[in-house]
């Protein structure tokens, strides 16, 4: 599910073939060199005598690498030129790396309104994507192995990564630059949808949060308000407008929680709220262990209902 050897986009495909060619070439050279070494050690002296000469070094150590590398270098540069190329009309997405999650923003596009989400990058199949990345704190690195290389998220700089998803599916991305305590638990999902599904998703995401329709969910929303969750999280359409943590307007629609750590359901949400500092110590959110089981279920239920 997360592999550079299973390319799902053009760039990853190109790099995959580069990898294959270099691996095969490398193995052949390795066999040649070690073969010669063993021959030099074990062959009969008169048979190996031709090898014990300056000519061996000139041919094997100087001419051969120069010829091989003179071919590899332009090939590598060509792959580099064709990889990660900005395309006009690409879908712009902005991502900000934070300790230890991903803020995702879809800017307004003609009549489509802007909106934010977190830890989930949803893209249409076949349309070029241009992700602008930066960081809110320390350096992170954005990497979805199935779609190509990584790009660092550096405070004060905006980098871009361009790619096109060619197969619908769910892929996993990770932070590749060590970013502190929970670097190991900083992942996200990339969901590639057919264009029509993507448009539908986008329209849904831009809407304000759903109103709770059951008493327990109303209770959950009340707990959310009273607990001060809104000082860090935004739920569009309610008074919660904190900017510090992930946007929760449609948190129920996401596949995973905790930056790609757990499947998203009431149980994991409740566990997360009560035990963040146990499950992901060092994360910026405190544990809310004092909530009663019933309250916790109501709160988690409310969040889960925010489809």
């Amino acid at each position: 599910m997360q592999s550079a050897l299973d390319p799902a986009g053009g760039d990853a495909q190109r790099i995959y073939w580069l990898t294959v060619i270099m691996t095969v070439g490398g193995i052949l050279i390795f066999l040649l060199v070690t073969g010669l070494l063993l021959y030099a050690i074990f062959a009969a002296p008169e048979r190996r005598a031709w090898l014990g000469d300056r000519r061996t070094i000139i041919v094997g150590g100087l001419a051969f690498p120069i010829v091989v590398l003179s071919m590899l270098l332009p090939y590598g540069l060509t792959v580099m030129r064709d990889t990660d190329v900005p395309t006009p009309g690409a879908l712009p997405i902005e991502m900000v790396g934070e300790q230890y999650w991903w803020r995702v923003r879809y800017p307004a596009d003609q009549e489509r309104a802007e909106f934010s989400t977190a830890n989930e990058l949803v893209v249409p199949v076949g349309r070029p994507i241009s992700v602008s990345v930066t960081s809110a704190d320390v350096i992170h690195s954005f990497w979805i192995p199935n779609f190509g290389g990584k790009i660092d998220m550096i405070p004060g700089r905006i980098n871009r990564l361009n790619f096109t998803a060619e197969r619908p599916g769910i892929y996993r991305g990770v932070c590749a630059e060590f970013c502190g305590d929970q670097h190991a638990r900083m992942a996200f999902d990339l969901i590639a949808l057919e264009p029509a599904e993507f448009e539908a998703w986008r329209v849904d995401q831009a809407k304000p949060a759903l109103e709770p329709d059951l008493p327990s969910l109303v209770r959950g929303r009340e707990l959310f308000r009273m607990g001060g969750c809104g000082s860090c999280h935004v739920v569009r359409g309610t008074e919660a407008d904190g900017q510090f943590g992930p946007d929760l307007t449609h948190v129920g629609s996401r596949r995973t929680i905790g930056a790609g750590q757990f499947p998203n359901n009431i149980g994991t949400l409740a566990g997360w709220i009560a035990n963040v500092q146990h499950i992901k110590p060092g994360a910026r959110m405190p544990s809310y262990g004092s909530l009663t089981g019933e309250d916790l279920r109501a709160l988690a239920g409310y969040l889960e209902s925010l489809k």
């Binding site: 550079a4 790099i15 270099m22 490398g26 070494l37 590598g76 990584k150 590749a176």
Partner: peptide, 27 residues
């Protein structure tokens, strides 16, 4: 040393090629 270093040197040439390194880097 010759076995191990030759292999390491060859993967070194691989990571010298930037597009491959974009995948391999920090992995």
């Amino acid at each position: 040393f010759l076995f191990i270093f030759t292999l390491g040197g060859l993967t070194g040439v691989m990571v010298a090629v930037a597009p491959f390194d974009w995948q391999a880097h920090d992995s």
